[in-house]
Nucleic acid binder design. Structure first.
Lengths: 343, 343
DNA sequence: ATTAGCACTCTATCCTAGCGAGTGCTAACA
DNA sequence: TGTTAGCACTCGCTAGGATAGAGTGCTAAT
């Protein structure tokens, strides 16, 4: 016989989840009967719980224990119960933007604040410009045998490279080279710099053709270079939750945080993925080490078309409401910061 | 009555330490009597052990257990027994220097390799140039209202800053400014750029005096900016050692690694400190979280007068010989790398 | 449909006894 | 005098068993 979900079951489920979130212990029928306004006896609750278990929303760790929410249960909770967004005032401190005028610092600071505020672990991915366009190129002589190459790409990211010369340049060669490079490459991204173009440029460079080849290589390297784009903060917070802090689990998680391995899918923006807040419960995150965790991610926008992600990792019984709220607030604050920066 | 240290006691102490290092368990008299070539009965060993305990080299965790080395014991071990440097061939793989042409990447890679090789945690500090001298300054217009400031300082460290202009510059102003800045500041470090100099420069700049002020501020900020100068790798390795992996201890250690707090003294070069390899046992490191660990540090040299440090953190029973050997080898390899780079 | 009651299950905790590793001391021995 | 065998003793660790308590499922009464 198939049991249907009804209002009362939902209330009971919610009660179980809230209680389990607070305590981390399995919750029994008597607890529910006492601490809800349903005015039902524990026996009735038991029947309902039995149903809820059949439906897959809750689990019994062992026969004589209470129930804990299953992934499916959490999912329902997140999907439905979180809808009634009761926006509480969030006590998160104002971001200290004073000195943090550089994107990287802002993000690191955000990660730290979030970790401190939530007591979970925070991951932040720097925004990645998918097609990075060259905005500006400049070569300068630093010494007789060394040039400094400065490349500015989309998002005012600056890359520097030193190039060693085998022999000194002639005096007027540098401005010409700069002109050549800028006119030829400005506004292009890596995929647009093709063999034909390279060939043409080398031709124009005449006797310096070889040098131009080298320089182009360096530019390509500089542009495609990815520095660490993922920060974590508060990794040790997971040790606060007994269900995550046994040796094996903790090692896996901490190693994942340290090496940032296998969380690419989670923290990179898929092409046509929804922006906004996402909740991954248990195995939904597709990260082996996080199969007993939940992850909440939010997408922030730096400028049109340029996104990054913030993720919060905690136990499945994490305080979803708080985390979602906090993330929403953070997003707003980040928006403000980025808008101010662009004016 | 005062007991003197003699050859035999030393041998026994060594046996205790080696054995404890291998197993992590307290070692008893019988073990020593069986597994050494001393041909002594356990009773004799017991007497000697009793002496060694009186002398403070070993400790009994509880009455009916074997002995473990004390900090003093380890210290003696490190100081004397390690002298006979039996250089084993080190199986450490060749550093992959191919792509890692940038200092930062080399160091990160070294940290990772060391952590993997030793199964301890590695910390690496970037070299810090104490008096950073300005080598080269350049301003360029990126757009009508934005300049890019490039500052190269000692060690070919490049800093970039954007400066927003309230109104467009006159066309020939930029080269002049560049000339002014370079002639005035080249070869100076921050302490040498004083009020008098600044005043003089502002005067020379005439109508752009205010702008020059701004630029100087940015230069100061760029030069004095310290980015993260400490990496760690293999932090989770400490969880492999039972004596360090109980919750409290592990949390403290991992937090220290994550936040890099309180290890400045250890990883920064004191003014007149010895270069070379240093071993800190237990509280010797003066890092609260590491009072049950040992730390081995080595100083590497990038160029004349510019040093950084590599530190390896493990349990007190770490394999000092291996760690010291590995570090020595690593130092040699780093030397090679840096020498090749400078040619 | 709800509930009271009861038998049952299973975990967690506490206690105990006993084992075993290891010690310190004493007395005998070379 | 240094070494060793022997022995009583200490004490942590483990296994086993008893008990409490939380929680369940089922049944029968309301």
């Amino acid at each position: 016989m198939i049991v249907e979900m009804d209002e009362r079951k939902l209330k009971i489920l919610q009660a179980i989840i809230s209680n389990y979130m607070a305590t981390g212990e399995p919750v029994g029928s008597r607890t529910i009967s006492k601490y809800t306004d349903l005015n039902l006896s524990s026996a009735t609750i038991r029947n309902e719980m039995s149903d809820l278990e059949d439906m897959g929303y809750i689990i019994q760790p062992h026969t004589s224990a209470g129930r804990i929410p299953s992934d499916k249960g959490y999912r329902l909770y997140v999907d439905t119960m979180l809808q009634k967004k009761d926006r509480e005032v969030d006590e998160m401190k104002e971001l200290l933007v004073d000195k943090a005028d550089r994107l990287e610092n802002v993000l690191k600071q955000v990660a730290k604040l979030l970790a401190e505020n939530t007591n979970y672990t925070t991951m932040v991915s720097k925004p990645r410009y998918v097609h990075k366009k060259v905005k500006f190129i400049q070569l300068t002589l630093v010494s007789d045998t060394q040039m400094l190459l400065v490349v500015v790409i989309d998002g005012n990211i600056v890359k520097n490279r030193f190039i060693n010369l085998s022999e000194p340049l002639e005096h007027d060669e540098l401005p010409q080279m700069n002109f050549l490079l800028n006119t030829a490459l400005n506004g292009l991204d890596l995929t647009e710099i093709n063999m034909a173009l390279i060939h043409k440029m080398k031709e124009q460079a005449g006797q310096y053709s070889e040098l131009v080849g080298m320089i182009l290589d360096e530019i390509a390297a500089a542009v495609s270079e990815e520095d660490d784009y993922l920060y974590t903060s508060g990794a040790t917070n997971i040790l606060k939750y007994p269900e995550l802090s046994d040796k094996e689990m903790a090692t896996k998680l901490l190693t994942t945080f340290e090496e940032k391995a296998g969380i690419g899918n989670l923290m990179n923006l898929g092409s046509n993925e929804e922006h906004g807040i996402q909740v991954y419960i248990g195995e939904e995150s597709n990260v082996e080490a996080m199969k007993d965790c939940s992850v909440v991610t939010a997408t922030y926008q730096i400028e049109e078309g340029v996104y990054g992600k913030i993720g919060i990792v905690g136990p499945k019984r994490m305080d979803y409401r708080k985390v979602v709220n906090t993330l929403e607030n953070t997003m707003k604050q980040l928006d403000d910061i980025f808008k101010n920066k662009n004016t």
